[in-house]
Computed example of a mutant assay.
Amino acid sequence: MNKRFFIFILFIIPFIGQLALLPFVNRIQPILFGLPFFHFWLALWIVVTPLITVVVYKLEKKNGGYE
């Protein structure tokens, strides 16, 4: 797999999680950490998205993309 394609896929994952999957997670039950599932799902992606961005940054830096 091409490294650029892998990085592109990593950048697409948050968009899919936050936008494309919303109709499937739009429900109240179960309650997780005191939040309806929909709100928990969005809060989860607020944490996951920067982590993915850090991984992409490290991959690009290792590849010589940011100097």
Rank of each mutant, 00 (worst) to 15 (best):
67 E>P: 04
8 F>T: 02
30 P>Q: 01
7 I>P: 00
9 I>Q: 01
28 I>A: 08
27 R>Y: 11
58 K>H: 10
60 E>A: 13
50 P>M: 15
12 I>N: 00
26 N>I: 03
51 L>D: 09
23 P>G: 06
24 F>H: 14
42 L>Y: 05
15 F>H: 04
1 M>V: 06
51 L>S: 09
25 V>Q: 06
55 V>D: 11
33 F>S: 02
16 I>Q: 00
63 N>F: 13
14 P>C: 01
35 L>A: 15
20 A>P: 01
27 R>F: 11
32 L>Q: 13
52 I>F: 12
52 I>E: 06
18 Q>C: 05
56 V>N: 10
62 K>A: 06
57 Y>G: 10
10 L>V: 02
9 I>M: 07
24 F>L: 09
3 K>D: 08
66 Y>A: 12
67 E>D: 08
63 N>Q: 13
31 I>V: 10
60 E>L: 15
33 F>Y: 13
57 Y>H: 10
9 I>F: 03
1 M>N: 03
35 L>W: 12
58 K>N: 10
10 L>S: 03
59 L>R: 00
66 Y>I: 15
59 L>K: 05
65 G>M: 15
55 V>G: 11
26 N>P: 04
3 K>T: 08
42 L>I: 13
23 P>F: 07
55 V>Y: 14
16 I>P: 01
53 T>W: 11
14 P>D: 01
64 G>H: 09
46 I>C: 07
15 F>W: 10
42 L>C: 02
5 F>M: 15
17 G>C: 00
64 G>K: 10
38 F>E: 09
60 E>I: 13
54 V>C: 13
15 F>T: 03
25 V>P: 02
45 W>M: 15
6 F>M: 08
50 P>H: 15
44 L>P: 00
8 F>W: 06
63 N>A: 14
4 R>D: 07
3 K>S: 09
52 I>A: 00
21 L>R: 01
8 F>Q: 04
7 I>F: 00
62 K>I: 06
53 T>H: 11
40 F>W: 03
66 Y>R: 14
9 I>H: 04
40 F>Q: 01
34 G>Q: 07
42 L>S: 09
27 R>L: 12
45 W>H: 14
59 L>I: 14
34 G>S: 01
19 L>D: 04
61 K>S: 13
40 F>S: 01
19 L>P: 00
34 G>C: 05
50 P>F: 09
58 K>D: 10
5 F>R: 08
41 W>V: 07
63 N>T: 10
10 L>N: 02
67 E>M: 09
66 Y>K: 15
20 A>L: 05
51 L>G: 07
31 I>D: 05
12 I>E: 02
30 P>A: 02
49 T>K: 04
47 V>T: 08
36 P>G: 08
18 Q>E: 05
39 H>Q: 13
29 Q>V: 05
9 I>A: 03
51 L>A: 11
15 F>G: 07
6 F>T: 05
20 A>R: 03
63 N>D: 14
32 L>M: 08
53 T>L: 14
24 F>N: 12
65 G>C: 13
33 F>A: 02
32 L>W: 14
66 Y>M: 14
63 N>G: 09
40 F>K: 00
17 G>V: 00
53 T>P: 04
47 V>E: 08
14 P>R: 03
30 P>F: 00
32 L>I: 15
3 K>Q: 03
2 N>Y: 04
30 P>I: 02
58 K>I: 12
